[in-house]
Nucleic acid binder design. Structure first.
Length: 835
RNA sequence: GCCCGAAUGGCGGAACUGGUAGACGCGCACGACUCAAAAUCGUGUUCCUUCGGGAGUGAGAGUUCGAUUCUCUCUUCGGGCACCA
């Protein structure tokens, strides 16, 4: 018998799989399909890191098992290659980003292939390939044509030292990531995508999909739907009104003051009425100067200034109430103004105390539960939900001091107030979202060019574009892809514009509408663009007529199982769902939701629990592990380390145990006895194998890879102790191991006369009857303590077992002659004797 | 501050719908093989113990014949959101 030599075996089988297209999905449309997906990597110059193989291997195991179960599996891979690190590297070295990207992709490909992941390499997509981004641009144009893309004046992050615009990701703790310089906001016209129009759909769509709970909650929070009312407050002796949004219209009688955000345009309009305008202006200017960081850091202490001479009128009781400007009110949410109810909102409470504004209670907390009447009880153990601790009560209860709402529960009070407001025409039911529209422009080179042109003549004639942006036109579809031009320098310009603006011959074009002179948009798309639809392109990656054929989309969509990092559950997941839902609405994809199921893997940390990073020098390169131990050991170890969805610490010592396990399985060949059976162990081994089939199958379906490996280890240990194993049983074990250690499994499978790849074999099935034991061990407890255990036949009756148990010496001893008060029998588990 | 998640031997981690806590692996100890070492194989490995037992899953209570599992309070750690009215 040869020694297990992973390096030799792995190269051999990787070559075999490639030559035989073993893992290419078929566009047969006959077999049931299964479409698993992992997040495609960004091909960085640093190469693969041991974190990458975790999701790839996990889904690979699922994919391989599904193939063996008869599914037509599409398990694709690609590269999300536009991005800042490559662009920055290009700036530093002067090399074209495309060239650097090609090199990095080649390196990533080599590394991933060395892991034996069953990706369909015939469908690789690269977001920077013009053949790919042609369709990214095309989809953007559909969004534009349907009025979902518009240009708006928005603040960007401006590094005062590098004199360039930064993406949000480049701003770390309010400073420039590269130079550490100050970052300020500068206004710039940017393309926006109206994702807010899909807020409701993005929210309700979550009901029908199987995402891990955390991902759903995060998306819900991000979308941030809140239901309430908008209410108009009149201003005394003035035509102007203040519109506010509130989720608690039932507390309107308790509104004792109002607040405008510093950016609110009403301040300027009321200038003449404000007696202390100089103070107000001063406050507003100071607020503007505060960076985002300062605003959040200084949140502990609320500040504001009263607009003296201005009084608002509470519409429910006509009381005159003061109006403040304060930066704890955000300009970007709701109407940028609030009605303040200090008795029932903690922020308003704090502010009212500081500025001496009246506090009026209009909601009583619900009755305290009778079992917790006593104050000491409450302090000791009442659930926090029924405790009342402060003078400010933000919860729900019963309305008081509120005229026609008195005595109503919060829910009813809200409804009644909304009806009243609507009847009087001073307010209405209103739903607000936290979700903002998506800033889609980047002043960068290494991204997809935005395929729009601006014609000044048409703009002046109010042609094209949309209401906000006349003069903008989509380029003709025949001109797609609009390729990135070659440039000399990749640096952003002094004005914060994209480097593309420095190429006059590229910028200058003709207007698709009037044929006159026009200018191209010089901003590029953000990183998120290419990854917002890549799962659709995998289905038909070489199609040059459509982004994917309808027939193929109908067969393959939606993605059955998408696994990715928690860091992408908000933006990437939301953006790609948005694009898919849009494409569904215009009839181009068959399902509204792109992903049926979403799971998440935990990070692999360096020893000591730190993140692996280049600067700390603690990155483990999978190449080294493959060379030393082999890919099968690496794969199996990564799966064995710990629960798939939790962070785990890398430990090179752990690899040793897994290598020993694989060696042992390999060496089990010595135990194969072809001729002889009947050595007395077959039945036991068979039973064990059936138990393992069940366990491993269930565990893979639930991503409990660590316990699946443990069970396989247990099986191999058990078999090692047996005198012989039949070839049939041995190969059954090899099949079960094949998704984890595919190279070794192929080698062993071939060694015993099989000419076809093990990946074509049927996944083992278990027989429930063979799993069952004939005798079971019943645990005996006396007064809750384990005192003995007995082996009894499975079908023993309750009476019989009770008699047997009470006759046990160990039980008699603990009974001390007393009669048992109660004897409980839990079928197949235990007998509990209570004295 | 709010919302999630977690806490189990020396370490990573198991334990189905409440039913023998510590599977599996690392490490460690002893033994076999060896001149020796490595590798491999075998045995043991939660703690205390007067060897009868006793204690034990972050802490404290509760429900139960029985709680790592359910309820409540608290502590610590990790993640997300962060003045969203």
């Amino acid at each position: 018998m040869n020694k297990y030599n992973p390096q030799e075996i792995e190269a051999k089988w990787q070559k075999y799989w490639e030559e035989n297209n073993s893992f290419c999905a078929e566009d047969s449309f006959v077999k049931p399909k299964f479409y698993p997906l992992i997040e495609f990597p960004y091909p960085s110059g640093a190469g693969l890191h041991v974190g990458h193989p975790r999701p790839y291997t996990g889904m690979d195991i699922v994919a391989r098992k599904k193939r063996m179960e008869g599914f037509n599996v599409l398990y694709p891979i690609g590269f999300d290659a536009f991005g800042l690190p490559t662009e920055n590297y290009a700036i530093k070295t002067g090399r074209p980003p495309a060239e650097v990207t090609a090199e990095n992709i080649a390196n990533f490909t080599r590394q991933i292939k060395s892991l034996g992941i069953s990706f369909d390499w015939s469908r690789v997509v690269d977001t920077t390939d013009p053949k790919y981004y042609k369709w990214t641009q095309w989809i953007f144009l559909q969004l534009f044509k349907h009025g979902l893309a518009y240009k708006k004046n928005m603040p960007i992050n401006w590094c005062t030292s590098c004199k360039i615009g930064l993406a949000n990701e480049e701003v770390v703790d309010g400073k420039c990531e590269r130079c550490g310089g100050e970052v300020e906001k500068r206004d710039k016209y940017q393309w926006m995508l109206a994702i807010t129009k899909y807020a409701d759909k993005l929210l309700s769509g979550l009901e029908d999909v199987d995402y891990i709970e955390r991902a759903k909650v995060q998306q819900q929070n991000w979308i941030g739907k809140s239901e309430g009312a908008s209410v108009f407050f009149n201003i005394k002796d003035c035509e102007e009104k203040i519109e506010v949004f509130t989720t608690r219209p039932d507390t309107l009688f308790g509104a004792t003051y109002m607040v405008l955000s510093p950016e609110h345009n009403l301040v300027e309009k009321l200038k003449d009425k404000i007696n202390n305008f100089a103070d107000v202006e001063d406050y507003i200017n100071k607020a503007k100067l505060k960076s985002d960081l300062e605003r959040t850091e200084l949140q502990k202490e609320k500040t504001g200034v009263e607009l003296q001479g201005v009084k608002a009128i509470n519409p429910v009781n006509n009381e005159e109430i003061p109006v403040f400007v304060a930066d704890y009110v955000l300009a970007t949410y709701g109407t940028g103004a609030i009605m303040a109810v200090p008795a029932h909102d903690e922020r308003d409470f704090e502010f009212a105390n500081k500025y001496n504004v009246a506090i009026k209670k209009v909601v009583l907390p619900p009755a305290i539960h009778s079992s917790y009447r006593n104050a000491d009880d409450i302090a000791a153990g009442a659930p926090s939900s029924i405790r009342v601790e402060a003078d400010c009560f933000p919860g729900e209860g019963t309305s008081v001091n509120s005229d026609f709402l008195n005595g109503l529960e919060t829910k009813e009070a809200k409804e009644k107030m909304i009806t009243w407001l609507e009847e009087k025409n001073i307010g209405k039911k209103q739903i607000n979202f936290k979700l903002r529209d998506w800033v889609f422009s980047r002043q960068r080179y290494w991204g997809e060019p935005i395929p729009l042109v601006y014609c000044e003549k048409c703009a002046s004639e109010n042609k094209g574009g949309n209401e906000q942006n006349p003069g903008w036109f989509a380029i003709a579809e025949s001109e797609l892809p609009l390729e990135l031009p070659q440039v000399e320098k990749y640096e952003p310009t002094d004005t914060g514009e994209s480097p593309l603006s420095q190429i006059p011959e590229w910028v200058k074009t003709t207007c698709p509408n009037c044929g006159g002179e026009a200018k191209r948009e010089t901003d590029t798309m953000p990183n998120w663009a290419g990854s917002s639809w890549y799962f659709l392109r995998y289905i038909d990656p070489n199609n040059d007529k459509e982004f994917a054929s309808q027939e193929k989309l109908k067969y393959w969509m939606s993605v059955d199982w998408y696994n990715g990092g928690m860091e992408h559950t908000v933006l990437h997941l939301l953006y790609s769902r948005f694009w898919n839902e849009f494409l569904y609405d215009i009839g181009l994809v068959p399902t509204s939701e792109p992903y049926k199921k979403r799971t998440s893997h935990g990070m692999i940390l360096a020893k000591g629990g730190e993140k692996m990073s280049k600067s700390k020098g603690n990155v483990v390169n999978p190449d080294d592990v493959v060379v030393e131990f082999g890919a099968d050991t690496l794969r199996t170890y990564i799966m064995f380390m710990g629960p798939f969805d939790q962070a785990v610490e890398w430990d090179t010592n752990g690899l040793v145990g897994v290598k020993r396990f694989l060696d042992r399985v390999w060496n089990l060949q010595e135990k194969i006895n072809n001729g002889e059976r009947g050595m007395g162990n077959e039945e036991r081994v068979e039973k064990l194998i059936h138990q393992v089939i069940k366990k491993v199958s269930d565990d893979i379906d639930n991503m409990r890879f660590n316990t699946a490996v443990a069970k396989l280890m247990e099986l191999s240990n058990e078999v090692s102790k047996a005198p012989f194993i039949s070839q049939k049983d041995y190969l059954e074990i090899v099949k079960l191991l094949s998704p984890f250690a595919p190279h070794m499994a192929e080698e062993l499978w071939a060694m015993y006369g099989n000419s076809q790849s093990i990946s074509q074999e049927k996944w083992p099935e278990y027989d429930e009857a063979k799993i069952k034991e004939d005798t079971i061990t019943i645990v005996v407890q006396v007064n809750g303590k384990v005192r003995d255990s007995i082996d009894v036949p499975v079908e023993i009756s309750e009476e019989d077992i009770k008699v047997q148990v009470l006759a046990l010496e160990n039980v008699k001893k603990w009974l001390e002659g007393k009669e048992p008060k109660k004897v409980i029998y839990v079928k197949g588990r235990l007998v509990s004797v209570v004295v």
